[in-house]
């Protein structure tokens, strides 16, 4: 059974078709990359799939752990918020959108656990430290405020905060955007390892084809609000069928 399923998603911003009859299937444990240039509708699709933005038409269904399907956009707001705090996670391009900058690093991680009902301070702190270590942040930084962290560290802290509750599904919007190449490589390896180890499903928006190749099982290529091609990551990138995908793949600089 699919974890997330969308059919007929359409959304207009005045004259612009941001989404035009988009369908998506995501299976448990699968990483789907949405690629395409700026303005192709990738981030809008991510926001609609995660229930953060309502479509003009179409439906998104999420299958809960009991096998029950829920229409994401018909859910009451509190239920959707609970979903975002428990089964789901969202990794923003700018970690400051997700982190609380006036709360310590450990607090940022522990807060997600408390929202899920954890109450024992010692346990929460121990788990927060464990997660900081997993994302390669030194345990002695646990009481430091995020504003003393570098961009790469902030992104890793956001990932710890997101994954600490073991979500089944994570939405990622350009998680390596705006980072130095060396920091990117480290972060990508970290995401790749954690997602595989925890068996998390993910929808990843990126304009960077190399990121998609490294992390995703499957790719959907978007152009002007439509998914023009979808398939196995290596098949779409090595044998692109659609004219736009061929252009996208052939435009990448070889390092």
């Amino acid at each position: 059974m699919t974890l997330l399923r969308a059919r007929g998603l359409s959304l207009r911003f005045k004259a612009i078709r941001a989404l035009d009859d988009v369908a998506v299937d995501l299976w448990p444990g699968e990483v789907l990359a949405i690629v395409g240039e700026s303005g192709s509708g990738k981030t809008t699709l991510l926001n609609v799939l995660s229930g953060r933005m309502a479509p003009d038409a179409g439906t998104v269904w999420y299958t809960d752990p009991e096998g029950q399907e829920h229409d994401v956009h018909a859910m009451p707001a509190p239920a959707l918020r609970t979903l975002h705090r428990s089964d789901w996670g969202f990794v923003h391009q700018d970690p400051r959108q997700n982190l609380r900058m006036n709360v310590s690093a450990g607090g940022n991680v522990g807060e997600r656990l408390m929202a899920r009902g954890a109450r024992n301070y010692g346990d929460i702190r121990a788990e927060a430290i464990d997660w900081l270590t997993q994302v390669e942040i030194d345990a002695n930084r646990v009481d430091d405020l995020p504003r003393t962290f570098s961009g790469g560290m902030l992104q890793r802290l956001q990932i710890a905060r997101t994954l600490v509750t073991h979500p089944r599904l994570v939405f990622m919007d350009e998680p390596t955007g705006g980072l130095d190449v060396s920091v990117q490589a480290r972060l990508l390896d970290l995401i790749r390892t954690l997602v595989a180890r925890l068996g998390i499903a993910a929808v990843l928006v990126t304009h960077d084809i190399a990121v998609a190749r490294l992390l995703a099982h499957r790719i959907a290529v978007m152009q002007r609000g439509r998914v023009v091609e979808t398939g196995l990551t290596d098949q779409v990138l090595d044998d692109p069928q659609h004219a736009y995908t061929q252009l996208l793949v052939s435009s990448v600089l070889q390092a």
Binding site: G231, L232, D234, Q235, D238, D239, Q241
Partner: peptide
């Protein structure tokens, strides 16, 4: 070879 692997469609 690549077709056999599903790398080419």
């Amino acid at each position: 070879m690549r077709s056999l692997y599903g790398n080419y469609r």
